[in-house]
Design a protein around this nucleic acid. Structure first.
Lengths: 338, 338
DNA sequence: AAAATTTATGCAAACGTTACCATTTTTAAC
DNA sequence: GTTAAAAATGGTAACGTTTGCATAAATTTT
């Protein structure tokens, strides 16, 4: 079995003490130039690499941050992760990525696992299923730096970053209205998610501003967030079965948008009949058929901002008590439906 | 700052020695029943959790495995990772996921980073850009357990698992032939990848079996593997500009399939004119327009097999010298193009 | 009742590193 | 040429855990 060179090995070989070698390697001011040179060169020769585990034990720092997202296969999250990594690696942190598959149970397990593994901080976007987040509160109170992104929690006071879900939903709904649609349905995500409610508000406001009466039967919740296709198909079927059918659907969630497109395709509907707009960060929305207009979140950017906030939290000498919630613009892409 | 309870704390509180506490916690045979009970209960009370970092330092085992893939945003890889996790977590390992964005440079950095972080083993699917994998060979020779999946390397003797790329490509090509197509182009990935060549062979064999002459000008390599849309569009344009235009395209890569669909859409081509079949694990291939037939790899299953192989390697008492390469079937989904 | 055995516990070292304090050597000051 | 100051190096303990060995206490054997 492979055994890498240690400081002790170098000390022994060079007839120096481990402390001297350690200081020489870190370019300590108290070490003479020639000793430094000697040590550096020998270290190079035996390919010395400091042992991060020993360092972690000593310093109670791991230079790793935990990431908890519902699903890697969701483009929004993989884009956000790319953003996180871009900054984290640059700053010498590595990332431990975990997915919860939107299960509250797995979320708790993963978070505790990460905390136990002593990550220096946590970036988390909450699972759709989670209503009890006491475990997070405990960790937060114990001093674990946490930053929420996208799916945030009001109850825990820390840095947060989300999209401007209200405005995104407003604009999308408005675009449908401007196409002349008046009977606009809403397909929405699990109601305990922050983003679900913000997007709902945007939708309602747009209706109100254009004096379109709000019809509760046009709103359908898909609590499983599009992970369960059947649920979405049922919702769509329900809408199509209304005696006063909708002439447009606004979908307030990434995965549900895809499932809805699939449902409409399977139900063999006429694209002229119903206009669709939905949140989506899929990199192939523009190729889907039936085609849809879409609201895109700046996922990469959000990841970057989140990790920057976290690093601020981690590296601050003094406890931070003033927290910021950053809200990022969304982009609306209109597709001519034919 | 939060400071979790340690064995020492427990020992002090209970007026025992750390060794006794340690043994009691691990249910050592030499400890009296009452001491065990005492210790267990107190540990419970102060919420004692063993410190994995200290354990890693002591045991030279981290119970973590490194995963290196080209891109998380690629469905194939996120599915494979889900498969890996499903087994790994069950067996008490956690995973550190890294992506290379198909850059050889980042691949080397990530791998070395993981090795240095002392993962117990490595699961890797090679980047398109990598031609020099000396760094992997070195680590492998130093005794780091490595398992390759999907994009493997011949030169390094260890466990490997890939799809039956030859057969997958053969079947896809054959399906195009059976549709009556004779001028079948091939859009393919970086030539240094194992999968590229296997798929090329399958394509060639199908042509040969059906006595269709092979035309080199119908083969286009997209070395950037579909990460660069322009490259794919240029390739497609090139094909369409031939005086004897292809009547079908077989695409031997996931990302390139998507880019090709986009190119055909942008170039406003007639779906009747060119039939398309391509490798893809996207969960929305069936919704794309223009529509394509597709070969799907059993990504989840591949991930599971890969991690099982790795754990065998890691946990074996004696060095393993007999290695297996497992080949998994693919599935062909035919779409009626209209 | 003394010796032998079993049972339960404690001590010390180790994993690789660094930080504090102590010591030695060199240079500067008078 | 002694003393003071500065520069370079070494020793030790600590981070949290486990393990081999030593020891103490309890039990059994004769």
């Amino acid at each position: 079995m492979y055994k890498p060179a240690t400081i002790k090995d170098i000390a022994l070989a060079l007839k120096l003490s481990p402390s001297t070698v350690s200081r020489a390697l870190r370019d300590g001011y108290e070490i003479s130039a020639e000793t430094k040179k000697l040590v550096m060169e020998y270290a190079q020769k035996v390919n010395y690499k400091s042992n991060p585990i020993a360092l972690s034990l000593k310093n109670r720092r791991t230079y790793s941050i935990g990431i908890v997202v519902p699903k890697l296969a969701n483009s929004f999250f993989s884009q956000a992760i790319a953003g996180i990594e871009s900054i984290a690696y640059e700053k010498g942190y590595h990332t431990i990525i975990t997915q919860t598959h939107d299960s509250s149970e797995r979320e708790r397990t993963n978070v505790n696992h990460l905390a136990q593994r002593s990550v220096d901080g946590l970036l988390i976007s909450m699972s759709a299923g989670t209503s009890d987040y006491g475990f997070l509160k405990t960790l937060h109170n114990d001093g674990l730096p946490i930053v929420f992104f996208d799916r945030v929690i009001d109850d825990i006071d820390t840095f947060k970053v989300t999209s401007d879900n209200f405005k995104g939903a407003y604009n999308a709904t408005e675009s449908l209205i401007k196409k002349g649609r008046k009977k606009i349905a809403l397909l929405s995500n699990a109601p305990q998610l922050s983003i679900t409610n913000e997007r709902l508000s945007g939708y309602m406001k747009a209706l109100a501003d254009y004096h379109i009466p709000f019809r509760p039967e046009l709103i359908r919740n898909c609590s499983k967030g599009g992970n369960d296709y059947e649920e979405v198909e049922d919702a769509v079927k329900g809408l199509l079965a209304l005696h006063e059918k909708p002439d447009a659907i606004f979908i307030s969630s990434d995965r549900i948008s895809i499932s809805c497109v699939r449902a409409l395709k399977n139900l063999d509907f006429d694209p002229n009949e119903i206009a669709i707009a939905g949140f989506s960060n899929s990199d192939v929305v523009d190729l889907l058929h039936p085609s849809i207009s879409y609201v895109r979140q700046k996922a990469f950017e959000m990841g970057q901002i989140a990790v920057e906030m976290l690093l601020k939290l981690i590296e601050s000498k003094y406890p931070i008590t003033e927290f910021e919630t950053k809200i990022i613009d969304t982009e609306l892409f209109l597709i001519d439906q034919k």
